[in-house]
């Protein structure tokens, strides 16, 4: 009975949303209501996620587990942001300064670390696999991409070399677009499978 009820709710909502694209005038208000419900559910899920995150880190601090100091930092940052955001609002200069001078440098540093990590990962690839055609191609493409972004190789537009450079700059688009097409087709198939109740990702163990 529980499974049947879940399937019925799924089919009703899914087919209603799908039909809304074809009959927007008739199903528009109903769809807006469903989307509002979805927003409420997402918000509730976010609150539950925050609750479990806090609970997990409080537990780590209480048990004094390894690296529990990091949990203390997280709890302190979360509490500060929450309290300041609630009482000062995001338009307060203090809140803006805190965000700009803390969050922005931290995120930028993470991106810088990411670049170094990717570089060392390429070293590990070569040190474990050796000089294989794949590793050589990987390193060569990375170096060429960096060289093109440096801007040190700029030629006047219209020459054949410029056409080659533009081709190399757009070459990653081929792979990226292929991935996007695959994602779109995969999403379409998954949606159809869920609507046809072939897949039941809503409660199966």
């Amino acid at each position: 009975m529980k499974k049947i009820l879940t399937i019925v709710i799924l089919l009703l909502i899914g087919l209603t949303v799908l039909g809304g694209y074809f009959f927007p005038a008739a199903l528009g208000p109903l769809l807006n209501l469903l989307i509002d419900w979805g927003i409420l559910l997402l918000g509730t899920a976010g609150l539950i996620g925050v609750y479990y995150l806090i609970k997990s880190h409080v537990g780590q601090v209480a048990r004094k587990e390894k690296k529990f100091v990091l949990s203390i930092v997280l709890l302190a940052a979360f509490s500060t942001t929450l309290i300041l955001g609630l009482f000062l609002s995001i338009e307060d200069p203090l809140f803006i300064d805190l965000m700009i001078n803390i969050q922005t440098p931290v995120e930028t540093s993470l991106l810088a670390i990411l670049a170094v990590v990717l570089m060392t990962a390429s070293f590990r690839l070569i040190s474990t696999q050796g000089w294989t055609p794949m590793s050589i191609a990987f390193l060569t493409s990375a170096v060429i991409s960096l060289a093109l972004n440096v801007g040190a190789v700029n030629f006047r537009l219209g020459t054949e070399v410029t056409a080659v450079i533009n081709y190399l700059r757009r070459l990653p688009l081929i792979g990226a677009r292929g991935i996007l097409l695959g994602m779109a087709l995969g999403g379409l198939i998954v949606g159809l499978r869920v609507l046809l109740t072939i897949d039941k990702p809503y409660g199966e163990s």
């Binding site: 670049a115 570089m119 390193l139 990375a142 960096l146």
Partner: peptide, 11 residues
Amino acid sequence: ILMMGVMVIGA
């Protein structure tokens, strides 16, 4: 440019 050099030498 430094990154490129490090990558080549490191590789």
